[in-house]
């Protein structure tokens, strides 16, 4: 299985750098989701990996072989574009078969492979259609099929679902997960959508301003964000100034016993996810009082905006409708769900 390694990649445009020394090993056969806000350099990273443009500095290797100077057409990397970039003058089957045609596969074999691939993405009935005759979701499937048909060593995906509407995106996300896990191909999936990144990635890379902010398995990154940027970019988070000394943490509204292995001492930041706050009785352990400012009904839960000890807090509660505006609320942090960051 193909392992892709990026070493100190740098890419500059006109006067500013899009990538400022990006290093990462993309494990073979795994899906790595690269998540970052727009302008973080993720599209640049993908085009360097694809070979569409050369890096200014740094190297890319595939299973130890240097490929940084290899042009895109000789890399055998499948690439799925944000807006699909399907060939408008070709049919669905011709689009999917394009990579096989340039490799000179005999027509019969080509037909067979195209049929197989279309079945994989569940649109064999659309083979003879023209691109403009099929829907956006179907075009997305064609784009994926086209990138898979020639059995690439590595699959690169650039926000493949971003052009679809919310409902379709959810359906396709589930299917993409099934498809990619069935393939065992090394996949690098670039997105700005945290739900996609968390759901699809075996590995998560958080990119910010052209460098990696944090990487690791999604659960770990979500549960233990390394910076306040990661904490608030990946899901919602309350980031509260705190002081930590000898197993005790002091927050503006409560003092808790806390175990922390990171070796932080003194002033620090506490990260609390909204879903890690729960209602408590006034005299319960670790309970603190807060004042409700506003609430938002979200269907399966209630989002509360509160103030406690002068700090703004956001809490997601299943049973939030017990809370009444103006009345004091008592909350507590779920045990073990507090992460400390250096200030």
């Amino acid at each position: 299985m193909a392992q892709v390694e990026a070493r100190q990649l740098v890419k500059r445009y006109a006067d500013n750098a899009a990538l400022k020394g990006f290093s990462h090993v993309f494990p073979g056969g795994k899906i790595t989701a690269v998540l970052g806000p727009s302008g973080s350099g993720k599209s640049t990273l993908l085009s360097l990996l694809a070979g569409l443009q050369p890096p200014d500095e740094g190297g890319i290797s595939l299973d130890g072989r240097d490929i940084a100077r290899l042009p895109a057409e000789r890399r055998d990397f499948g690439l799925v574009f944000q807006n699909y970039a399907l060939f408008p003058h070709l049919t669905v089957a011709e689009n999917v078969g394009f990579g096989l045609r340039v490799r000179g596969l005999p027509a019969a074999e080509r037909r067979e492979r195209v049929r197989e691939t279309l079945e994989l993405v569940r649109i064999p009935h659309l083979a003879e259609r023209h691109i403009h005759q099929i829907s956006g979701g179907e075009q997305q499937r064609v784009a994926i099929a086209r990138a898979l048909a020639f059995r690439p060593k590595v699959l690169l995906m650039d926000e493949p679902l971003s052009a679809l509407d919310a409902r379709l995106r959810e359906d396709l996300r589930a299917e993409l997960s099934r498809l990619l896990r069935g393939l065992d191909a090394t996949t690098i999936y670039v997105t700005h959508d945290q739900v996609e990144a968390l759901g699809l990635g075996d590995e998560l890379v958080i990119l910010r301003d052209g460098v990696i902010e944090q990487s690791g398995p999604p659960q770990i990154v979500y549960r233990h964000p390394a910076t306040s940027f990661v904490a608030s970019f990946l899901g919602a988070a309350n980031v509260i100034p705190a002081t930590f000394r000898e197993g005790k943490i002091e927050l503006p509204f409560v003092r808790l016993v806390h175990e922390d292995a990171s070796g932080i001492q003194g002033p620090c930041l506490a990260v609390i996810r909204p879903e890690d706050l729960e209602l408590a009785t006034a005299d319960g352990p670790g309970a603190f009082a807060a004042e409700l400012e506003s609430s938002l009904f979200l269907g399966n839960r209630m989002r509360l905006h509160l103030v406690a000890g002068g700090e703004r807090l956001t809490a997601d509660l299943q049973d939030g409708n017990q809370v009444q505006a103006g009345a004091p609320v008592h909350l507590r942090i779920r045990p073990g769900r507090l992460t400390l960051l250096p200030a």
Binding site: G51, E73, L79, F81, F87, G99, V102
Partner: peptide, 27 residues
């Protein structure tokens, strides 16, 4: 002409001439 089509063809392994004959020229 959308340059991404050319990029797509490159990623699929098409050489310069193949891209010109099969993608650029028809379009």
């Amino acid at each position: 002409f959308d340059p991404r089509l050319d990029a797509a063809a490159r990623s699929l392994g098409a050489s310069r001439w193949q891209r010109f004959l099969w993608i650029v020229l028809p379009l």
